[in-house]
Simulated scan of single mutants.
Amino acid sequence: MTHSPLLRHDQTLFRDPDVFEFTFVPDHLHHRDAQVQELAFLIRPARRGGSALSAVLRGPPGTGKTTTVRRLFREVTETTRQVVPAYVNCRHDRTPLAVYRSIFEQVHGYAPPPVGRHLDEIKRGIAARLRDHDAALIVCLDDANELIPAGTYNTLLYQILRLYEKWNVRKPGVFAVT
């Protein structure tokens, strides 16, 4: 008696294998409505021409902090040009230059030149784009605790939150995920 395989080479047990990708964001976040509403409340002033507020999102790994922020950022990007969300993975980008390069890329849609750019030039480019579009910046520093051993956590928070002083933009908000 020969058995045929349960699955052919072109079949899978999973309806949507993309759900296993790190960047996957579900359309609906179960049991996260309250958190999404709280974060949306912090962004609301920026949608009305003001400045975004900030928050620290704390909790054990795998509890939905990053997914909640990514889902909210996707919705903000789809519904308004008044707010420019920038997601920074601090496990990869730990230096001020790397963080600002990541922000620049998301604000402009392309990366700054790899060499020859001073940090202030990158900040100027970010600010110019925000001013041109009369938009507020909200930055998610995901795994922000990774910046502490690198010695850049306090510096980056201070610099991002005070961009408005030097560059004449609306006060940015920061979501620090730890």
Rank of each mutant, 00 (worst) to 15 (best):
E78Y: 05
F14C: 13
P5I: 06
H133E: 06
N145R: 04
S4F: 07
T63E: 09
G50I: 10
G125A: 14
L156Y: 03
R15H: 05
R15D: 07
A128R: 15
G173E: 12
D93M: 14
E105W: 06
G59S: 08
R70P: 04
P45I: 00
L156T: 07
C90E: 09
P114L: 09
A46D: 02
E38T: 10
H133D: 04
T67C: 15
R71C: 15
V174F: 01
P60M: 13
V88N: 08
R91L: 12
G109I: 07
L156A: 09
L119I: 11
A150W: 06
G109D: 11
G173V: 08
R129F: 02
T80R: 04
R91C: 11
R170C: 06
Q106I: 07
T67P: 11
V19S: 02
T80P: 04
F104C: 09
L147I: 08
R32L: 05
V169T: 15
Q159A: 12
F24P: 10
C140H: 01
I122S: 06
I160C: 04
A144G: 11
Y153H: 12
A144D: 07
D132R: 14
S102E: 14
P26F: 02
Y153L: 12
K65V: 00
E21T: 04
D10S: 15
L97I: 03
T68A: 13
T2P: 04
I122H: 04
F73K: 11
L141G: 05
H31T: 08
L163A: 10
F20S: 04
A136T: 08
F73M: 14
V88T: 05
